[in-house]
Nucleic acid binder design. Structure first.
Lengths: 117, 117
DNA sequence: CTTAGTGCACTATGCGCATAGTACACTAAG
DNA sequence: CTTAGTGTACTATGCGCATAGTGCACTAAG
């Protein structure tokens, strides 16, 4: 994976794992890779990897057990709430951005259905 | 205005001016505020303000005349192209983000039309 | 007990952003 | 010419990100 140099790496990796969690790729209670292993797989520093898990725990998505590792939270409600929150945020950000360009909600919806890859 | 501490200020101010240009708030050939004035109005450092105009010129949106100021480009095609580019990018970013959450294009369009403020 | 894997804490370095401050060069207007 | 407004070029400081490296404490498995 290659990173956007304009945004902190820990935030970008955190986003990746967040997505894996809300989509079920990483199930509730599942053990996540160790800090050092995560660092290798993403090509980042162990300190940066540790930061990722610290922030995920702050967000209530992971639980850390010293000596054992970091695990996806077993709180399914929290996960469902996050999925809802992320989707709503994506919609609002999009509407705000496209609105500032002078595009209506209806036109935005049309662009989404018609946009080619 | 308050800034997102996770992203460079010059990028955020640049985005503001970009939007003003593509929406016609700042017309082609129009003189933009001086670097020091821009700094005061946004509450940022003159050096950061200068960076904004440097980047806008790199993007082909402004023309700088030493001793006179910075002006919106007279190239209307460039402006129209940017508007198209920004809208397309917003759509693609949105589709990518919402797609990673497991939401279809149709559901995304529906969410946009139904989302409340 | 020993070992491997883990989280955690610490020092140090380099880089870019953002700040503050100063100085210089150019242009238009008086 | 003088002045005000402008872009431009420096130096310097503080901060957070990201890196590198080391060590320690905890846990489970052998």
């Amino acid at each position: 994976m290659q990173f956007d140099p304009m945004r902190p790496i820990w935030l970008q990796v955190m986003g990746e794992i967040e997505t894996d969690i809300v989509t079920g790729v990483r199930g509730p209670g599942e053990k996540l890779p160790g800090g050092r292993e995560l660092a290798v797989s993403y090509g980042i520093n162990p300190n940066t990897a540790a930061r990722v898990y610290q922030e995920l725990e702050k967000a209530g998505l992971c639980e850390t057990r010293r000596g054992m590792g970091t695990f996806v939270t077993g709180n399914a409600e929290r996960i469902a709430a996050l999925r809802e929150e992320l989707a709503r945020k994506a919609v609002n950000d999009f509407l705000k951005k496209v609105g500032s360009l002078g595009v209506s909600r209806e036109d935005a919806a049309r662009m989404i259905l018609e946009e080619e890859e």
